[in-house]
Simulated assay, not measured.
Amino acid sequence: MTIDTNPKLQVKPTAIPEVLVVEPKVFGDQRGWFTESFNAKDFANATGLTVEFVQDNHSFSRQWTLRGMHYQLEHTQGKLVRVVAGSVFDVAVDLRKDSSTFGQWVGEILSAQNHRQLWIPPGFAHGFLVLSDTAEFLYKTTDYYDPKSEVCLSWCDPTIAIQWPIPAGVEVSLNTKDTAGLSWEQAPKF
């Protein structure tokens, strides 16, 4: 994949090359700042990808909330994720059997201050941990939410061994679905 530099958008691959850190240019002065959070033409030029987003999601979470690791077997979703308030540690796990990075994970800190976004293509489990007191998390998806095909991979599976930045003595807050996430061996792959 060739990645071009665009004056309004910087894109760099992570350790899993298909997962991309997207940094929109931020224009600021004494009044505040402005950024174009998404532009289809600039995204395509900078990444070489043409994607159509069909759904936007917005969540609010308190510190040490962990959401994930989610994916859909059918109606697989590519996601462009960002934080508009607070900060999170955002993680993607490669579930593509034919990939050279199968079973590996990458994590990035996304915050309202750094304006970074993460492109997570279909075929990945996704989740995040809230680092700040609270966080608002937005993401665009390339397919609609389909609860019948949703799968949750365990956030703490020892085979994957995600290095979550959780301080000693802190207990993460999980919902029932995320607590019951499947092990790496049990989780269906692509």
Rank of each mutant, 00 (worst) to 15 (best):
I120H: 06
W119F: 14
A112W: 06
G127W: 04
F124G: 03
V130C: 07
D98M: 00
I120N: 09
G123L: 02
E136G: 09
L95F: 07
F137A: 00
T142W: 01
G107S: 14
Q117G: 03
S111L: 12
F137Q: 05
K140S: 14
F137E: 02
L131Y: 04
P121Q: 10
R96E: 00
V106Q: 07
E136W: 07
H126R: 11
Y144D: 08
D143M: 01
L129F: 12
L131T: 03
S132N: 14
L138A: 13
V93G: 01
D143A: 15
F102I: 10
V106Y: 05
S100L: 14
L129E: 07
T101A: 00
L138K: 07
A112E: 15
S100E: 15
G123C: 02
P121R: 05
R116I: 01
T101E: 03
L129Q: 04
P122F: 00
R116G: 03
N114M: 05
A135F: 07
K140Y: 09
D98C: 02
F128Q: 00
G127I: 10
V130T: 13
K97P: 00
Q113S: 15
P122G: 06
S132H: 14
L131I: 12
T141P: 09
H115Q: 14
V93L: 05
V93N: 01
S100I: 13
L138T: 10
L131V: 04
D143K: 02
L138C: 14
V93R: 00
R116L: 10
H126I: 10
R116D: 03
P122I: 00
P122H: 02
V106D: 12
E108A: 06
H115A: 13
D133E: 15
L95C: 10
P121E: 14
H126P: 04
Q117P: 01
H126A: 09
L129K: 11
W119Y: 07
S132A: 15
Q113L: 11
L129H: 10
Y139K: 10
T101K: 13
Q104E: 15
W119K: 04
D143I: 10
G123F: 08
Y144V: 13
I109F: 08
T142L: 02
Y144H: 15
F128G: 05
Y139F: 11
G103K: 07
L138M: 13
L95W: 02
L131N: 11
T134F: 12
A135T: 08
R96W: 08
R116E: 07
Y139P: 01
T134K: 12
F124M: 03
L138G: 09
S132T: 12
G127Y: 01
T101R: 11
D133F: 00
L131C: 06
V130D: 05
D94M: 07
F137R: 06
I109Y: 09
F137N: 10
N114Q: 06
I109E: 15
H115Y: 14
V93T: 04
V93I: 15
H115P: 13
I120P: 02
H115W: 13
Y144I: 10
L95M: 15
G123I: 12
W119N: 01
T142G: 01
F128K: 02
